[in-house]
């Protein structure tokens, strides 16, 4: 197919990567807004979800917030931000939108992970004389870890996807390569940009899967006691 070859030519042309609107700059923007947003979302969602899960309250909130998040179009939120003075504040509108869409998967998964810890295990831990804090750190957190990481993964994928849609309202990120290609009827550039965005999402997912395996508390224990 001609388009694939043309897109490959686009990707391997150095001039397309350099400069202010070049692919390298767009990739940097994309990674910057995604990283900041994911960190902020984790800082907001994880303590809240872990606390609510620990005390066993707020289940309805945790479940409903992910349903609401699904129903709201990313494009609409970004467009609404562009109608406000926020549009003049650089990467801020993108970051706020990304945080809004990263919080639901983080919150819901961490909460469900905490609540799905076997009740009898918790009772046994308390029976052994563990305090609330000890139960949280030594029992609940390690057992909830897989779900917390699942939430982190879906949040990261969501963030990378949302950051690309920011281009549709004229904000920065890798998506700009695609929208610029649409504006100039350059199908090769659209395809090349799409390949970059898709690859980035898959790499992020892959890195997080590897990180998940590497950091798993249950894996470490298995290694320590052969």
């Amino acid at each position: 197919m001609g388009v694939v070859e043309d897109a490959w030519t686009w990707l391997t042309t150095g001039a397309n990567w350099s400069g202010d609107g070049g692919a390298a700059h767009r990739l940097g923007e994309h990674l910057y807004v995604s990283g900041v947003a994911l960190a902020v979302a984790c800082a907001i969602a994880l303590p809240l979800a872990l606390y609510l899960g620990h005390i066993g309250r707020g289940g309805a909130l945790a479940v409903n917030i992910s349903n609401v998040g699904r129903a709201i179009p990313v494009f609409a939120v970004l467009a609404l931000f562009m109608m406000t003075p926020l549009r003049n504040s650089g990467y801020l509108p993108t970051i706020i939108a990304l945080v809004l869409f990263a919080v639901p998967p983080l919150l819901t998964n961490a909460y469900v992970g905490m609540r799905e810890v076997d009740r009898s295990v918790l009772e046994a831990a308390r029976g052994m004389g563990m305090s609330g804090g000890q139960v949280f750190v030594r029992v609940e957190l390690p057992l909830a870890y897989p779900m917390i990481m699942t939430g982190l993964r879906s949040a990261a994928v969501q963030v990378v996807a949302t950051a690309s849609i920011a281009a549709m309202v004229g904000l920065g990120g890798l998506g700009r390569i695609i929208t610029a290609g649409f504006n100039t009827y350059d199908t090769a550039q659209v395809f090349a940009g799409a390949v970059l965005v898709a690859l980035l999402a898959l790499v992020v997912e892959g890195v997080l899967v590897a990180l998940d395996r590497l950091l798993s508390p249950l894996r470490r224990r298995a290694v320590r006691t052969p």
């Binding site: 998506g175 290609g181 659209v190 940009g193």
Partner: peptide
């Protein structure tokens, strides 16, 4: 799962040709 990971903007653009 891989399909789901591809961002929507990229998915639509990849189908353009």
């Amino acid at each position: 799962t891989v399909l789901y990971t591809v961002p929507s903007l990229a998915m639509f653009s990849l189908l353009l040709p």
